[in-house]
Nucleic acid binder design. Structure first.
Lengths: 167, 167
DNA sequence: GTCAGTTAGTTATAAACTCCAACCATTTTT
DNA sequence: AAAAATGGTTGGAGTTTATAACTAACTGAC
């Protein structure tokens, strides 16, 4: 321990009672970042549970869905689409390849690029995963009506992709 | 490297063209988890920028706001309120103490507990931070009307706190 | 051609966050 | 008093996430 560390620098002040239970966030709940984080925490928890059996992480699932929608997508394109950086894509695609769910194919025209495709196995799995994911989303948002759910998605899209959020 | 690692196991298949640009997520954008993550990413980016000058992390900000709203809150209560675990609260409060923004006070009744209070400095700072945070939220959600913003908050609260979300 | 500059992908590394298990001090229960 | 429970703390392992540096391949200007 460094001397600069204040090893439990507790003032020995007198205090009769203090707030001991859980507490609602008050002004905090008006903060968008906080609300987003809390909601995401819950949704992701459900997602993890739903995917546990298949040992799939959120980013892996997202990748599989994009690859399915755009067979031959490049890694850089995947990075832009998912808003993650290139090094992460490498790991992501590696993990998918190792599990036999996807494969890289070198592009003839530009031999730097790899097109990514799903294997038969990958195709089969992603279909199942999409179903599980939908169920998980529903379970995590039981408190919402179908209309509210759609509304929420639209509002979120408006935030991160203002141009296309309204569609 | 292990022999089991497939060092760039690229099939030398022939491929003329492939999807190279960024791509819209298609079915992916219907996934709640994805939309939440993307929106949070953007909101947090704005938040980080707004707080850079004061070198404040999201969790630190949240803590300050809760402590301000509930002076004398205990660490366990803070943990429950922010949905983080006790060890993280220790680090969090340490960092706030080291910077002179908050202080622990041992409770007379139960000497295991620490009430946490803001210092004068902390009080002054949190007021400024709340203002910055509000501005940052607005900037990150320029695409939303005030009504939509309120709607979004309500929907998010409904997800993570179904009982109180409607209020 | 060849040189500089750019892009796709990769590697390595470090920083940060999260989670877990163990631990001390204190309080409560029996 | 002994046992169990609680508030807080410490340390470490396992993941993420970001950064920098690097190779390979392509492009365009000369």
């Amino acid at each position: 321990m460094h001397p600069s560390d204040n090893e439990t620098s507790i003032r020995q002040a007198s205090l009769e009672d203090l707030v001991t239970g859980p507490v609602d966030g008050l002004i905090l709940e008006e903060r968008l970042g906080y609300a987003l984080r809390r909601a995401q925490l819950k949704v992701f928890k459900h997602f993890d549970e739903a995917m546990r059996e298949h040992n799939i992480r959120p980013a892996q699932f997202s990748s599989l869905v994009v690859i399915e929608g755009y067979p031959g997508v490049t890694q850089s394109s995947l990075a832009q689409t998912l808003a993650i950086d290139p090094p992460r894509v490498v790991n992501l695609v590696n993990s998918l390849e190792e599990r036999g769910l996807a494969m890289r194919v070198r592009c003839k025209r530009d031999r730097r690029s790899h097109g990514i495709f799903l294997t038969k196995q990958g195709e089969a799995l992603v279909d199942k995963l999409k179903e599980l994911s939908s169920q998980s989303d529903l379970a995590a948002t039981q408190a919402l009506s179908e209309i509210e759910r759609r509304q929420l998605l639209m509002l979120l899209r408006k935030i991160y992709a203002p141009a296309h959020g309204e569609g």
